[in-house]
Nucleic acid binder design. Sequence first.
DNA 1: AATGAATGAGCTTTCATTCAT
DNA 2: CATGAATGAAAGCTCATTCAT
Lengths: 219, 219, 219, 219
Amino acid sequence: MPEQPRAARRGRPPEAGLAQRRRRQIIESAYVVFAERGYEGTAISDVAAHASIGQGTVYRYFTSKREILDHVVDFGIEKLVATIEPQKMLQLPTSAEDLMESLHAAASRIYDMVEGEPEFIRLLFVEASAIDKELADRLLGLEMFAAKFVARELRRGIEARWIRADVDVDVIAHTILTLVLPGLMRELRGPSNAEVRERTVAAVLNLMMKALRPRSLAP
Amino acid sequence: MPEQPRAARRGRPPEAGLAQRRRRQIIESAYVVFAERGYEGTAISDVAAHASIGQGTVYRYFTSKREILDHVVDFGIEKLVATIEPQKMLQLPTSAEDLMESLHAAASRIYDMVEGEPEFIRLLFVEASAIDKELADRLLGLEMFAAKFVARELRRGIEARWIRADVDVDVIAHTILTLVLPGLMRELRGPSNAEVRERTVAAVLNLMMKALRPRSLAP
Amino acid sequence: MPEQPRAARRGRPPEAGLAQRRRRQIIESAYVVFAERGYEGTAISDVAAHASIGQGTVYRYFTSKREILDHVVDFGIEKLVATIEPQKMLQLPTSAEDLMESLHAAASRIYDMVEGEPEFIRLLFVEASAIDKELADRLLGLEMFAAKFVARELRRGIEARWIRADVDVDVIAHTILTLVLPGLMRELRGPSNAEVRERTVAAVLNLMMKALRPRSLAP
Amino acid sequence: MPEQPRAARRGRPPEAGLAQRRRRQIIESAYVVFAERGYEGTAISDVAAHASIGQGTVYRYFTSKREILDHVVDFGIEKLVATIEPQKMLQLPTSAEDLMESLHAAASRIYDMVEGEPEFIRLLFVEASAIDKELADRLLGLEMFAAKFVARELRRGIEARWIRADVDVDVIAHTILTLVLPGLMRELRGPSNAEVRERTVAAVLNLMMKALRPRSLAP
DNA sequence: AATGAATGAGCTTTCATTCAT
DNA sequence: CATGAATGAAAGCTCATTCAT
């Protein structure tokens, strides 16, 4: 059935998807300038200028500056999740080495991203959290989700005997996720150093291996 | 002590330390209201009101709102350092157990403080960091200083053979310091739970022990 | 006089009255939303939405929001005049009773309308007048026109001796027209009360009768 | 007792009454510019400029533009009441002539004021009423209060037999108060005319006399 | 002819900072 | 020294109007 406009469709046809594109355009611009100058330090006019549109236009697509931040955070989370490529982790690890390798790969990808966009973490974890608790909670929620995932792997590892039985999986899952943080922080400070970075990841994962593997499996 | 009238002010200058006291008073008030409402959400008049002084007076002791934040951060760092009571750590540990005990005690003190002033971490690490990089760097500097301290202990431990020789002390020192973070984050979310908290600290330190102790010493 | 189409437009000219109909449609929508939310409180987009047309279309038929108000006022005046049904008054009264009866009937019709559309008076006399003097003057002009009409009747009444000779007809004509006002005002305040309303009209007209009729005719 | 400041009163003494003066100053400026350009047509900066103060200062004394309007209305009502000099009416009338004389005097004073400040009525009754019902109600309340006052006089007149017994005092009280309106309206249109004005008041009051006096007292 | 996307002027309101007293 | 009154720059947001399609 060809597009049969009902009742003499008059006037300029509303370009489908335009709203989606404009929203995206604004969110991306906001992402950039928020990261650069911070949320409070950014005026809507800055966002509009960066997107090369009028300030008024911004308000055609978002009802408030705050709403834009919400979407910027979602955008950031999407980006973060995409970076980690969780689907790559779906091949269940069958040994501590496997698990560590997965984590190593994920950590590397995160480092790569942060290297490319050093303001990313700042915007997402610092800036957004400073605005209000709801946003901070959203990020914590993300961490909790990931921790549950890791905890499940750990439990499987215990059952399969490639992880010590006395490990408090819930606590350690959170801990593992936090282990990249000190490296990330250092990354944020300035030009990163590939060697230091590799050493950091290696040392931390090595430590985890030592701690998690049952003695019987130790070399 | 009679109140020395102005005009023909002879003798001892009135209260050399008054300026210091005023500054302190303002910083403490700012600390409270910044923690409560955030830096951007706080007006200078709020600070002045909390300190029971006029707004103008604030500007006799600080040149800008921003400068006050600097001092609030310093104040917070002092508090944090005092909480950790580093002098208690000066008795050098002579075993992994010793070191872990020290860290356990420090972690407990930090948890206690956060429990008492949950907005503390938020102000120091989130709010302040969001304002500008220089403040974030100051906090990172604190961490680096502490990490150096821990690294030295680790190195001593290796020499004394109660820590494995293949530990990358610089990296692990940072890592150790970060290990309390996930617990702290959870703490910030709501009413803390003594049992969960103890379990977290125990699990993490246990993990460290396992990882750091040479095999020969393991039970 | 045929309408000469520019650019060889042959065949039936497309809807000569369409413009008229569109204008009418817009004015009626504007009348409704202006009455509901006030002139300043109404956006052109509200008018367009109520008329189920695009905002741009509004500007094909009117050059400005202000111009629409002009027409809304005219529309309101028309409605008011139609309500009063002046043609019914063309049967010249031949006694004070006649005149009063006419006025009574007119007053009743006005009350009925206000009861049905309580925002009517507000829009016409309050809202519009607040915008600019020219609009207020237009309403005053209406009143003056009506007053002239009433004055003529009064003069006829004096000649025919059913009205006192010493009545200042010009002044009293205006006065008569204003006499319904206090009732109308009360009507605007809330749910009207048929009994109060009837009493009001009766009292006022009774008073007029007493005042206008020559003593010789008084019972 | 000389001013004994408690506890070393320091700093510039807060000038007593300044707030009152500033508020008054702002209200009077607002009264002028609101009357001139209307409430919606006036920006706070206009009010501030007219009062020769900064915009920010306005907000030290009022929390919103709307609050200013409230006070302007109160100011207008005060002015109106002061104009009518109700205390002059406290000598109870003892005849219809007395009452009419009182009303005549009051009407004259109102006309005088309107002549001096033609925008007065517009601001108070048109502009303010257009903003919201609460303000309109405040004005209606004023009228109701005055009407009660007049009604009481009328009732006394009936008892004293200088007013007909069959007068519906409540209705007529409202009516009397409205009788000046048409004159006022005309007054608003342009340069007033003393002769027309006198004639208007005379005619209306004469009519009232005729209508209210019992036949037995008529000449 | 009709549309709705785009725009920027202009609004109210906040607040860091200055300064007369 | 201390004060709080004064200020104006700057922010978020609205909407009458324009114009490409």
